[in-house]
Amino acid sequence: MGKLRGLSLFANVGVAEAYFEELGIDICIANEIDFDRARFYQDIYKNTNMICGDITDDAVRDKIIKESIEKNVDFIIATPPCQGMSEAGLRLEFDPRNQLVTYAIDVIKHIKPKFVLLENVPKQLTTKIKYGDRIVLIPEYIKAELGQEYNFNKETLVMAKDYGVPQLRERNIFLLVRKDLPYIWEFPKKQKEITLREAIGDLPSLDPYLREGMNLTLTKFPQFEEKRKAALEVSKWHYPPTHSWKQVEWMMHTPTGKSAIYNEKFYPQKADGTPIKAHHNHYRRLKWDMPCRTITQNNGVISSLACVHPGRPYKNACGDILYSDARVLTIYELLIVMSLPLNWPIPEWATETFIRKVIGEGIPSRLVREIMNSLLIQL
Rank of each mutant, 00 (worst) to 15 (best):
M85D: 07
D133A: 13
R134H: 14
N120I: 10
L125A: 09
S86Y: 04
I108A: 08
I29W: 01
T56E: 13
G132T: 06
N120K: 06
I108G: 07
V121W: 00
P96K: 07
D133Q: 14
D58K: 09
K46C: 07
Y163V: 01
Q42H: 12
E140M: 11
K128E: 02
E93Q: 13
K143F: 10
D26V: 15
T126I: 14
F152W: 01
I51N: 02
E140W: 02
N151C: 11
D57E: 11
I65V: 15
N31I: 04
H110L: 09
M50K: 07
A144S: 12
D43M: 10
A144H: 08
I69S: 07
E22Y: 14
I129Q: 01
V158W: 00
M50G: 04
L118P: 06
K112G: 04
P139L: 05
Q124F: 09
L92K: 12
T102N: 11
N72H: 14
L125V: 06
Q148M: 07
Q42A: 06
N98L: 04
C52Y: 12
Y103T: 08
I111D: 03
Y103P: 09
I65D: 11
V121Q: 08
N153Y: 04
R61F: 09
I64C: 07
L146I: 06
I29C: 03
N98I: 01
T56R: 10
A144G: 13
I111R: 08
N47Q: 14
V107A: 02
P96G: 07
F152Q: 03
D26T: 08
P81N: 04
M50I: 13
K123E: 13
K130C: 14
V136H: 09
D26L: 15
I64R: 02
E119F: 05
N98K: 05
I25T: 12
L90N: 09
A160Y: 03
F115C: 01
V158R: 03
V107I: 14
K154A: 15
G84A: 02
P80D: 07
L100C: 10
M50L: 11
I138R: 02
L137R: 00
Y41V: 03
E149L: 08
I76F: 11
V121Y: 05
N72M: 09
A30R: 04
H110R: 15
A30N: 03
T79D: 05
I142C: 03
K63Y: 10
F94N: 08
T156L: 02
L117W: 06
Y141G: 08
M85C: 10
G89H: 03
D133M: 05
I108H: 00
I64G: 01
I76M: 03
G164W: 02
E87W: 08
Q148G: 14
G132R: 13
K71P: 04
L117D: 00
L146P: 06
V60H: 12
D58V: 14
Q148S: 15
K114D: 10
Y150K: 02
P113Q: 11
D34Y: 03
M159K: 09
I27P: 00
G53Y: 01
H110G: 05
A144N: 06
L146S: 08
I135S: 15
Y150P: 04
S68T: 09
M85K: 00
G164K: 05
D54W: 07
I129A: 01
I55S: 06
G147R: 04
A78M: 11
D36T: 09
Q148P: 02
Y150M: 05
